[in-house]
Write a protein that binds this DNA or RNA. Structure first.
Lengths: 240, 240
DNA sequence: GCGCTGCCTTGATCCATGTCAAGACGATCC
DNA sequence: GGATCGTCTTGACATGGATCAAGGCAGCGC
């Protein structure tokens, strides 16, 4: 990733939308100040790569706004999306200067970046950040393993329902979940297919079947209304 | 996991087979002494669970000898193995007292355990252990994501070849890899199937096809001879 | 309005892998 | 040796999802 500071970004930690969930969340005042001192913002336009596999990556970052994907690709071009990155999610690997993933921006992205070395030094000294980092790593690991269950064992319909419920959980407040819910899918059909280990056509067909079964309505291809989330979730009673 | 100390285990760190690869690897003398002071050994017989999903787990541990598996299961019994644990691999999650996985012993197991709280305290104070732990977590994460590519994109044959090569890499010295190699598969056909997101029958058939194609020989079902590892690996030229 | 272009949907067909079923093989016990 | 049991292999068949192919539809530039 080229480190091009975005002069037009004047975000301030006080008003940062991810202040309480990102890597900086658990830091006390002193740690926070030091993080603040070394941070800089960066924008990445939709569709552009943030890093490619094997490239040098000498920053770590939090996503402030936008959606990115982590992916791996086979030599002959088959791609698997291994994670969606939403605001507050963490990018990069302390202790290593290369990346073994492709990361790319799905929408326009704002990143809060830290040069890796100063960040590592800070992690050494700041126990709040350190704990948060370790927790983030283990949470990601749990999520990856949960996704392995999905990829290896679930049917196409269960995969789609799992994906819809994932978006609901990340974008709807728990207290609103018993009413009809409208969600915007962060991924195209193609990206969804790649995330779920399916093809575009299968994703599309299963969406149509869920619509015919009355479990969802499609306002547009990317905007979904779920009249009753518990009924949709019930489709997973054999899964999870 | 019940903490039953094994009185008959008198292993000593000096002669520990995983001394240089496990969580203790990067620790300096002082840290090492303190780890040593709180460690205790535990045996788990083959087939027995180490922890079940949701159970309390108030220790962390390194595998000293034997093979264990991490797995997740759906409500109706479909199982996905999410990782194989071999000697030097790490079990447990600092900072959390429950486990969201099943872990079970495939062979008789010897674990080097640390009660979680004292271990966490030590991690706070010992930077060598801390770095090693973070590195282990990120390595596991990379491995999990690589496996997602396998589960989502590879064919049955490619999955089997990947698995065989994985065992080769973990059990054969690099300098011996250009000669015919004999490996003992750590998993039954059933467990292999579950690891690869396949059925027993498909695993068995693909092994037979690899045999007919002259890429492997089957001394027994679990003991495989690979006359030419590079030729086997070439089967993956479209994958990875 | 019209014609692109990119994304999505739907239908027809195919095939890799799953499912069901029948042995084969090896270990263990008597 | 023979019976039994668990594990593995092989065959016949079924099917979920992939592939191939043909439009539909919304956004955008002209």
């Amino acid at each position: 990733m080229k480190i091009s500071r975005s002069a037009d970004l004047r975000l301030d930690c006080q008003h940062c939308p991810v202040r309480h969930r990102a890597i900086c969340a658990a830091s006390d005042d002193g740690e926070f100040e030091r993080l603040n001192a070394i941070k800089f913002y960066k924008s990445v336009p939709a569709g552009q790569a943030v890093v490619l596999r094997g490239e040098k990556l000498d920053v770590v970052a939090s996503i402030v706004s936008g959606v990115a994907i982590l992916s791996k690709t086979t030599a002959d071009g088959r791609m698997q999306i291994t994670g969606i990155l939403l605001p507050s999610d963490f990018i990069g690997r302390p202790g290593r200067d290369t990346c073994d993933h492709d990361i790319s921006a799905v929408t326009d992205l704002t990143l809060c970046c830290f040069r890796r070395r100063p960040f590592e030094d800070l992690v050494e000294r700041a126990s709040g950040i350190r704990k948060r980092l370790l927790d983030i790593a283990f949470d990601e690991l749990d999520a990856a393993r949960t996704w392995m269950l999905l990829l290896g064992c679930l049917t196409a319909r269960e995969k789609i329902v799992s994906f819809l419920m994932l978006v609901v959980r990340r974008s709807v407040l728990p207290e609103d979940a018993d009413q009809p819910v409208r969600i915007d899918l962060p991924l195209s059909r193609e990206a969804t297919a790649s995330y779920l280990g399916l093809t575009i056509e299968t994703v599309s067909r299963q969406m149509s079947r869920l619509r015919k079964d009355g479990l969802i309505e499609l306002e547009t291809a990317r905007r979904v209304i779920i009249p009753d989330t518990s009924r949709l979730e019930a489709e997973l009673e054999n899964a999870d």
